[in-house]
Each structure stands twice: as C-alpha cells, then as structure tokens.
Design a protein around this nucleic acid. Structure first.
Lengths: 342, 342
DNA sequence: AGGCATGATTGGATCGTTCAAGTTAAGGAA
DNA sequence: TTCCTTAACTTGAACGATCCAATCATGCCT
C-alpha cells in the first residue's frame, strides 16, 4: 500500500510536468485556473504529500521549530510549559510547521545543542523559554543569524529589542489581583515573592507595590522574599502576619508560595484572627493557575498560554516567510480566576 | 559564517573520497584504522555534521519519533505526560533520535495526522499514549507496517501482543498501597475509583481488592466509582464512610479523587471520627504523585516515568535498527511516596 | 500574415547523502 | 608467470523536490 507518491506521479496522472505541479502547490497564481484544479484533484486522489526531506534539501527550509523541554524543576508550576507546548504545537501545525523537542541542562549545553540541531535537522527557528539576564543563548543565535522568538522578555537590555519576544505582563496581573482585594475591602495586603534579581519575580512584585501605593497604602514592610517551595511560603506568610497583625490578604508570586500562604492562614496558630474578624478571613491569590490551585480552591492569575504560543508562532513565521527585520513584541495580560481563597 | 560543511568538504581535506567518509561514519569496520582516525580528525576540525534531510532522502530514515501532546485534559494529572515527554526526549537523543510533536483531538484525527506526518516528515516510529479498548490507532499503524510502541498495554486483546508496549503495573501499585495501610493497622480500607470499563481504572481496583482478600477482608461494599474530579471524590468518600463507619483508610485511583477524599476526611461532618479514634485518622493514598500530592502532603504512588520513557525508546530503537520481529513487553512497578496522609 | 509580448509549461541541473558497482594494489596458490 | 581473492578505496547514480533557463502557445497589433 501507500507506495510513496511523488510529484512525478502526480504530474504523469494529471498530464502535466513536475514543475507545474510544484507551481500549483507553491505559487498557484502562475498556473491557469483549470490546470490548477485538475492537478489538485489528482493530488487529493493519489493522496500526494510533499516530501519534506527533498524540499528541505533544495530550499534549505525544514519547517521545523525547535524548543527545549525542561524537567519539571519546580514541580508545582510544571504544567505551565506543558500547556504552552500544546498551544505551540497546535499553532505551528496551522502554519505548516512542526515542533521538535530537545533537552539541555544549562545555557552552555543548550548552545551545543543548537549547533547539533542546526547541522543535522536544520530547524528554521527556535523558541526560547526561561529567559534571564544576559542570556547567552539569545546572543549566540543573533550572532549566527538564526531566527528565534523568546517567551519571556529580554530582561537585561530592555531598551534594545534585538529580537522578537512574547511575554505575559506579570505586573499587570498582580496589579489586578491587588485591586480585586482592595475592592473586597482589604487594605493591608502582603506580598510573598522571590528574592530580588529574577526579572519575573521583580516584575510581579512591582505590580502589587504600585497598586498599593496608588491606593495610598505604603507597601514597605508588607513584602517577604523566599525560594519557591510550599514550606518556605508558609514560613514567610507566618512571619509576615506575625509582624503585622493587620494583614488580611496575600498576593503571591507563584501558586507554590500561595499554597504555603493558605496553610499559614488556616493554621491553628492564627485561630485568633478567624475569631476576631470572622467576616474577613485571610485571602490568598496565587500565580499561574496550576492544577494545584484548581484542586485547593486557590484564586490565581492565569497566563494566556495558548495566545502566547500563537503569538510566538506568528512572530516566528513572519520572520521566516517575509523579510520583516524588526518586529513589535507582544505583551499579554493574565486573567484572574476567582475561587474560594479570595 | 558556518557555511554548511558537507561530506565532500571533509573528503577533500582528508584526501579521500566521499564514500570513505561516509563509511567512517556509518560502517567504520570497512575502513583502515589510520584512515578512520584521519577522517575523524577532519570531521571534528571542520565541525561536520551529517545532513539529516539528505540522509533521509537516500535511506528513507528520518531518525524522528513522533508523539502526541495532549491538552492537560484532566488538569490535576497533567504533568504526568510532561515528565514522560522529557524522559522520552532525553532517551531518544542518546540513541540518536529526536522527538516530533503533534496534536489530535480524537483517534480519527490522530490517524489523519499519521498520514500527514508519514507523507511529509516520515517519522521512523510513533509512541502512543492513552491506549484504550479496541484502539484503532494501533490497528492502523499495524496495517501500514509502521513501527510503534505504546505507553499503556493493549487492553483489549491482552492475549496477543501484536506490538511492543511499556506500562506501569497499576495493580501492583495499589496492592503495595493497600499492604502499607494494612501494616499500619488499618483493616477496612476503601477504594475510590473510576467507573468500570477503563483498563487502567479496573487494573488499579483489582490490586486493592486482591490484597484485601488475601488479608482475609471482603472488599465488597468498600469501593466507590466516580468521574475524576475533586468534588466527585469528596462526595464518594463521604458516601462510603457514611455507609461503613468502620472505614479508616482510602486507596484512590488518582490524586484528584484522593484530594477529594482528604477533604471529606477532614470535613466537619466527620469530626466524630477524629474524636472516637484520634489515634487512627482516616488515611488517604493517591496515584501518580502529582505536584498536587506534594503540595498537600498526600501519600501517592509514583510512576517511574523516566524508566518508562527509556524503555519505549529502547524498544522502538531495537525494532528500527535490528530485525527484531516480536518484543517482550515491559511492565514497571510504581513506588509508594509516603507523606503525611498515610 | 508576420512580429512580438505575455503567460503557461517543460527539461535539465542541483541540494548532500548513501547504495551499488567498479577500480586498484597487494598477497597467495597453482 | 598467471589467475584469483581480498582489503581499501573510488566513481556514478539515485532519492524527490525546486530553481533556472528555455520552449511553446496564445492573443494582439501593425
């Protein structure tokens, strides 16, 4: 069966030359309408599909997009990349591209993998995730002239956007969360974040601080920084609430810390709060809307991952197809998913 | 830069013919030792990498493995596939393969995608996940003679293993969980599962039932079936405990249902139990060791996903390289990760 | 009718690799 | 010596698509 149909087979059956079939598929406007239809009929009839390897050899284009898949390093947030990947695969397929995976432990080995892949499979472009200050991967790709998009803005050199990027506006998210809490009657709203220095973490903290300040509340002393683990979040929350008993709500940089915050809020040591203000239990809002948030009823900020993935593909496809040199970055807003916790 | 080094370049510099370079790389035993070393030196020096497209055109082998990526349909269990994918990408790379992603909404569209991919990118093999009774995907691939491995045993026709597969022994897992509870002093151990008919669910239930029976405890009446949502799990657990107040532990088919079970066990309506037997709180064990389990301190069964992925690659690679016709399936045992809940 | 521009179609060359067949040189047996 | 075998390497062809340059057909103008 399926004895590999070639363009020559289609040409023979349709009674035209190979080139005409190729034209029908690649530059339909140079072929007469009637011929075009006839060829397309035969294509459907024989189930012809263009052979990527042969096309790639001639054109140098593989129609492959490569992306790294991480081990779910920070467990609780793992499924974020998962959902992004699904969106990417879906959008890519619609634009005629396929997604190729690779792994790498650090920037150095990732760059080595770039060389490997470019030499062997020749992907047309890369999608980089987890961008950070002074990212050597971006510089390397820029140097080689390999097209790529980052999911995550270039944190270091904000001023010069030397490559297209897509990101989710973390500050806008925490700002919305903070406003939501203000509207609900909270005023002393704390923040559980990561240590200063990570672009993502600082950005999210900034949205909270700005919104509090706009409401006339001084955010100083209301923030705690810790690593991204549930236990750390619980300890930080407890510390914050102990030091400022007026705190009635927490905005968190991640669902991990938010779950820790929830534990602290419900812990026996804080029973007095529930008794004092039963009308206003400690509210908690997380970030990323992970399955964990869904499971424990945590209000959280949801990243529009499907849209982000679609934007990545669109930017990359435009860079590959046309001769677009510089492209406007895309900044998307997360949405608040309200559950029991706030 | 990086002006695409071809096998002819290597041949010229090394002072041999193209074919000899090819032989050095593919069949080193037919080349004299000295020549071999000289060619390899040049290969390293020039940074030559074999062009997949050209090789594929000649040999018909793409060194690509295709796998579907799902939207995380059942949220809480989402990251299972994620971890499996990472392991697969990693193992595949070690064997000289790359992983290609695709999406599909159902079996029919997945088969259409098979045709698309086989016509265009010609992946050497597929890894199928989420196998079920009478899976048309397996039949289709068998019919076409396309190599594939399933992660998940062929539930329908257990007797005849017409293709290699890898699976995790769910029954062994729930049996281990049940034994763990028996050892801890529990005797009336309930089971929260899915409705009969899903291979995976029935298998997991069977391990629990068998172990209870072996301990001289009649499992009938101790099982509840429901769909895989936290709220459903909570309701089912409540129903079970209400109808049999002697129940002190729950083995669950998934972490989703287990989280529901935890909620029920801690709910105010069951306070009487805590008062009656404060020494023996209701224990709960889940399945899949998802991030949620880690976050809420749920004891759960962890699938050896990395090993499963490695086995898939190994089976597939052997089917592709050698002329192995039938291959022994691989059945791995999950391990119990003990946390606070049991 | 002849010339000419325009559009549609064709044949040959090419991408980088591997397969199949061929060449060369060295060694051994008759 | 002559023939044969074998190891080591080389040469030409082919995979299936697209690019390029050339050819053919058509209609229009003079």
């Amino acid at each position: 069966m399926a004895d590999k149909v070639t363009i020559a087979d289609v040409a023979r059956v349709a009674g035209v030359s190979r080139q005409t079939v190729s034209n029908v598929l690649n530059t339909p406007d140079v072929v007469r309408e009637e011929t075009r239809r006839r060829v397309l009929d035969v294509v459907g009839e024989l189930g012809y599909r263009v052979n990527q390897a042969a096309r790639q050899m001639r054109t140098g284009r593989s129609r492959l997009i490569a992306i790294r898949i991480d081990p779910d390093r920070d467990g609780i947030n793992g499924s974020v990349l998962d959902r992004f990947l699904h969106g990417l695969t879906d959008s890519a397929a619609r634009s005629g591209y396929r997604v190729l995976l690779y792994t790498a432990d650090d920037d150095r080995t990732e760059i080595a993998t770039f060389e490997d892949l470019l030499g062997a499979y020749e992907p047309d472009g890369f999608v980089l995730t987890g961008t950070h200050h002074q990212d050597p991967r971006a510089s390397w790709l820029l140097g080689k002239g390999v097209p790529f998009v980052t999911f995550g803005r270039p944190w270091g050199e904000e001023s010069e956007a030397r490559h297209p990027w897509v990101d989710v506006d973390g500050a806008a998210g925490t700002a919305a969360a903070t406003r939501h809490l203000l509207d609900a009657g909270h005023s002393r709203i704390g923040f559980l974040g990561w240590p200063t220095g990570s672009g993502v973490g600082d950005d999210r903290r900034e949205g909270w601080a700005r919104t509090l300040a706009e409401a006339g509340i001084d955010p100083s002393g209301l923030s705690r920084a810790t690593s991204d683990a549930v236990a750390d979040g619980e300890a930080a929350a407890r510390d914050l609430i102990d030091s400022d008993p007026g705190v009635t709500a927490l905005v968190c940089v991640s669902d991990s810390l938010a779950v820790g915050g929830l534990h602290a809020a419900r812990s026996p040591g804080l029973a007095w709060r529930v008794d004092t203000r039963p009308d206003l239990p400690i509210a908690v809002i997380g970030f990323d809307d992970t399955p964990v948030a869904k499971a424990v009823g945590l209000t959280s900020l949801s990243q529009p991952l499907k849209e982000a993935a679609a934007s990545c593909v669109s930017l990359l496809a435009r860079a590959l197809d046309g001769t677009q040199t510089s492209q406007a970055p895309v900044l998307l807003e997360p949405s608040l998913v309200v559950r029991q916790s706030a």
